[in-house]
Simulated scan of single mutants.
Amino acid sequence: MKREYSTPAMKVEVFEASESVAACYTINCNTGKGILFKDRDKDGEYSGTNELIYQDPIGYHGCGKIHEAAGLPDGGLTYNADFQDTDNGYVNGKPVGKPYKVFYWEEKRNGRVINVHFSRLGTEDWFKNPNAS
């Protein structure tokens, strides 16, 4: 029985980046000690009618470090809480200074929060890594 000759062939697969590939970001954790809250009554300051999320001195405050993140968190790098610095102390039971808008995220291990990070909006401290896909 005679065999038929066939031309050798090679199969080539090409990786093409898609929209589902996450970009890398660096985010500066740039607040001091303070109170993280949602300004429910829209009065521009922390009061008893607001939703308290975190309050120092329980150990959560801006660490001053730059963190790398792959992809965008739910909702992107946008306002998700208000932050009131307590570095300058209190007057009549209220922190000194005006609150400002922040993006905060929780660092978790085994489902438990081990750290919280805060980045002040409008500080240009969020950078997309142009070399990442």
Rank of each mutant, 00 (worst) to 15 (best):
K2C: 06
E4F: 03
Y5M: 08
S6G: 03
S6D: 09
S6C: 07
T7P: 05
A9E: 12
M10R: 14
M10G: 08
K11G: 05
K11T: 13
K11Y: 09
V14D: 08
E16V: 13
A17V: 11
E19G: 14
S20D: 15
A23Y: 10
I27K: 00
I27P: 00
N28G: 11
T31E: 02
G32N: 03
G32Y: 02
G32T: 04
I35P: 00
F37H: 02
F37C: 03
R40W: 04
D43L: 04
D43W: 05
G44E: 04
G44P: 01
E45F: 12
S47I: 03
S47E: 06
L52K: 05
I53P: 00
I53E: 02
Y54T: 01
Y54H: 11
G59S: 07
G62K: 00
G62E: 01
C63M: 04
C63P: 01
G64I: 07
G64N: 05
K65C: 07
I66G: 02
E68S: 11
A69Y: 07
A70N: 10
G71L: 09
P73S: 07
P73A: 10
L77P: 06
T78A: 13
Y79W: 11
N80Y: 07
D82I: 03
Q84L: 08
Q84G: 01
D85P: 11
T86I: 09
T86L: 06
D87F: 05
N88C: 09
G89P: 03
V91P: 01
G93R: 08
K94I: 11
P95A: 02
P99K: 04
P99W: 00
V102K: 00
F103E: 00
F103R: 00
Y104P: 01
E106H: 03
E107K: 09
K108M: 13
R109K: 14
V113K: 06
V113T: 15
V113L: 07
I114K: 15
N115Q: 13
F118Y: 08
S119W: 02
R120H: 13
G122T: 04
G122Q: 11
G122M: 08
T123G: 09
E124N: 15
D125L: 06
F127T: 13
K128S: 08
K128H: 05
N129D: 15
N131S: 12
